[in-house]
Design a protein around this nucleic acid. Structure first.
Length: 557
DNA sequence: CTAGGGCTAGGC
DNA sequence: GCCTAGCCCTAG
């Protein structure tokens, strides 16, 4: 372990030094910093966010240093997304989520500009897609083919038919053709394997900076203003500390508690869940209300900070950290400041220590649990035994995919890709010529409906699924998906399970009587109406069941 | 959504 | 093996 050169934030303020292990950044040491002000924290955090290969927990630790009422600008939100994106690329952890994150950025961009994608954005998008594919190629041929199929065949055709079609540039077409050549010719793979990652990151940075017009990543707000803000909040809500029943100066205590309670579990909720987990209500708040500050977003109708609820609901208790409330406001402000500094230093250093204790788990290594099905059978065996069959429907499974490609030139996916390839490079292929979504029936003869949204999961696009990582004890982590092996045959099997025949259930006398009465009332053929009018009686019956039953009843008569 | 043919489990 | 009720599939 050795101290790396101190980072150089843009404003050149004193900051921290990285702790490195074997050339990799594993933590951040802030112990040598004598005084912390908000600008120091901001510049350090911005610097961290700009690093492509910083472990997630270091970023989390940096967030710990900020009071929860600290304003989060749209640019910061984008930077958080960008950091995750860059992390995926730099750590060569290509996933579906990587591009989904970029789409979140795209949404933020549209929200702001309400116009067509900028050239910078198109370039960045193309670069990200290219880097993802190149990263997969460096991994192995299977991953490359899988990645190519998902990004350049499925996603590409989806984008073409989506409102985001303007995102597709000539450059994107050209790059796709290059990768397609690499699919066909192993020799070309070497040429695209080592695409310049830094250039990609630069393009993404350029795009982000253009979008936000170099709006400061962090509003220049001093800690004094935050304290004043908390006092103003107390006055505005009309709730004095006494009225809250906790003694004078509670608002300050609450503010302090918020900060002091900023621990692993809490930050996982606020940062990880709110920003990075799609579908989370809090994340929606962040995306839908870009102008609101973090504090506002967690504030309930009663004016109280909702983050308190989150803290009180968290699994880890922090009651001992609360001060007794006998100090003056002035003392408390000092306490906050000192706690702020102490927390900043201890948490960041702690993160560094934890990094050394627990090296990052290889995200590409599927664990045995994940490979085991519910029936206890080892899915790895199943994959091996079904790989040959699976190769007919997907280019991702089987042994050496290149060999498979050469031996099975009639693979439907590749045939379709040839068709796509044969279309004009300049002209976006017209989806109406194909009648169906490329990504579904036309590509792989799979039965699934076209996706209405790019964010929606494509059922046919995966032979590996990404799941949330289990939280590791004593360690901060941002959302990092893990691979879960899925054999193509298993997917088919799942479909069969979904359509498994229902267990036969005899009709009761009540059901028969109700049906008779209903047919008299609504007429034969109004099965939907009859079912809707007697949902309690016909529980678990379908309109078809009613029709069939009536057929039987009348057949006997 | 409905109608009608086909399939299947279960009883005899 | 046959019959039937219940369930499934799919054309229109």
């Amino acid at each position: 372990m050795a101290d790396a050169p101190a980072p150089e934030p843009q404003n050149s303020k004193p900051s921290a030094s990285f702790v490195t292990t074997s050339g990799r950044v594993t933590g951040l040491d802030v112990s040598h910093i004598q005084t912390w002000d908000n600008n120091t924290a901001s510049s350090t955090l911005e610097f961290i966010l700009r690093q492509p290969a910083i472990p997630d927990f270091v970023v989390n630790a940096a967030f710990l240093a900020l009071p929860l009422s600290y304003p989060i600008s749209p640019r910061l939100k984008t930077a958080i997304l960008f950091r995750r994106l860059a992390s995926d690329l730099a750590l060569r952890s290509v996933s579906e989520k990587t591009l989904e994150i970029f789409e979140l950025i795209e949404e933020l961009d549209r929200e702001t500009r309400k116009s067509r994608p900028s050239q910078a954005m198109k370039s960045a998008y193309c670069a990200v897609a290219s880097s993802c594919t190149a990263a997969a190629l460096r991994q192995n041929v299977d991953a490359f083919l899988d990645c190519f199929h998902r990004i350049w065949v499925l996603r590409f055709s989806d984008i073409e038919k989506s409102p985001a079609a303007a995102l597709i540039s000539e450059e994107l077409y050209e790059v796709r053709n290059i990768f397609w050549e690499a699919v066909k010719d192993p020799e070309i793979r070497g040429l695209v394997e080592n695409m310049d990652l830094e250039e990609t990151l630069d393009l993404v940075r350029d795009y982000l900076e253009q979008v936000w017009n170099m709006e400061p990543l962090f509003p220049d707000i001093a800690i004094d203003e935050i304290v004043e803000d908390s006092q103003a909040r107390r006055e505005n809500t009309g709730l004095s500390g006494f009225q809250l029943g906790k003694g004078e100066g509670l608002a300050i205590n609450v503010e302090e508690q918020q900060f002091l309670k900023s621990s692993d579990s809490y930050m996982q909720r606020v940062v990880q869940d709110t920003v990075l987990n799609p579908g989370n209500k809090a994340r929606e708040l962040l995306v839908e209300n870009p102008e609101k500050t973090c504090g506002e977003q967690f504030k309930g109708n009663d004016g109280l900070d909702r983050s308190i609820e989150l803290v009180s609901n968290s699994e880890i208790g922090f009651g001992d950290t609360r001060t007794e409330g006998k100090e003056t406001d002035c003392d408390k402000e000092k306490t906050i400041r000192s706690n702020h500094q102490r927390m900043m230093q201890s948490t960041l250093l702690d993160a560094a220590n934890k990094a050394i204790e627990s090296p990052a788990k290889n995200p590409e290594e599927p664990c045995d649990e994940e490979l085991r099905g519910n029936d206890g059978h080892h899915r790895r065996d199943e994959m091996a035994s079904t790989s040959a069959v699976g190769a007919q429907d997907t280019i991702t499974m089987g042994n050496e995919a290149g060999t498979v490609l050469e031996k099975h030139p009639d693979l439907s996916c590749l045939q379709k890709m040839e068709e796509i390839h044969s279309t004009s490079v300049e002209k976006v292929p017209d989806s109406s010529h194909h009648g169906e979504n490329y990504s579904t029936k036309n590509i792989c003869n799979a039965d699934s409906l076209p996706r209405s949204s790019l964010m929606e999961k494509n059922q046919t696009a995966h032979t590996f699924e990404w799941t949330d990582s289990p939280l590791q004890e004593g360690r901060l982590r941002l959302h990092t998906p893990e691979r879960k092996a899925r054999s193509p045959l298993k997917l088919i099997d799942d479909d069969r399970k979904l359509t498994k025949r229902r267990k036969i259930r005899k009709w009761t006398l009540l059901e028969e009587d109700t049906l008779r009465t209903a047919v008299t009332k609504y007429g034969k053929g109004s099965w939907k109406l009859i079912l809707g009018a007697n949902l309690t009686v016909f529980e678990e019956r379908t309109e078809v069941d009613l029709k069939d039953k009536w057929r039987n009843m009348t057949r006997n008569n």
